[in-house]
Design a protein around this nucleic acid. Sequence first.
DNA 1: ATGGTTGCATGGCAA
Length: 262
Amino acid sequence: MRIATWNINSLRLRIDTLRRVVETIRPDVVCLQETKVRDEEFPLMDVRALGFNHVLYHGMPNYNGVAILSKAPLKQLVTVDWCERDDCRYLSARLPGGAVLHNFYVPAGGDVPDPEQNDMFAHKLRFLDEMIHWFDGQKPGRAILVGDLNIAPLETDVWSHKQLLKVVSHTPVEVERLGRVMAAHRWVDAVRHIVPPSQQLYSWWSYRNRTWPGDDRGRRLDHVWVTPALAGRVKDAAVLREARGWDRPSDHAPVWADIDLM
DNA sequence: ATGGTTGCATGGCAA
């Protein structure tokens, strides 16, 4: 099964780009973040026309919003409100074969990496703490976690480790928290299982760097993880980097992995 | 050090 994750930055604006992503990657399941559409206005017919007849979505006006698009039937699982607010950052489903799929949109955290000064950064850390406790209380089993985690954990996940140590997304406090989320459920980084950690790999490039891909100042914020039971079943994975160079792109590129779930 | 761009929705906020 090929599973893709993409922060689309407005589903309605980029439905044609989604079609191009689907034609290029040919995924069985697509997990979206930042759909930016309330449920009443979700473009269900357009999504079905792309071949996804089984669709879960959870959206709100203006911000956030997640969706899971699938060719095969899904079973929707209980939803969770993170940090006591329903701000549409999470959906989960059971896939054919029984594996659980989690789709996350972790808060970006604002600009100042200090929870005392910046409520958005405090929210990000609290969200990660809740993920730690949530996964700590569950048996790993067969599960897949994807999404925009808004953290680039490895030195090779950013264009300059040294220059980003104090930049939100790559600060030691966030990387340490994300490491504890991984440890809580013994998550394995499926993409780094395929692309060696020695190799630079990014999935996001700021809109503010107008020269893409010239200086290639990217970060790997989007992830696919699997539990140990599935680690040996990850057959391939990549970032669709070229999508960042398409007309009117999202600032994130899609990330996908092939996982043998049978 | 600062400002740079985008989307949603029409002012300013979050990314």
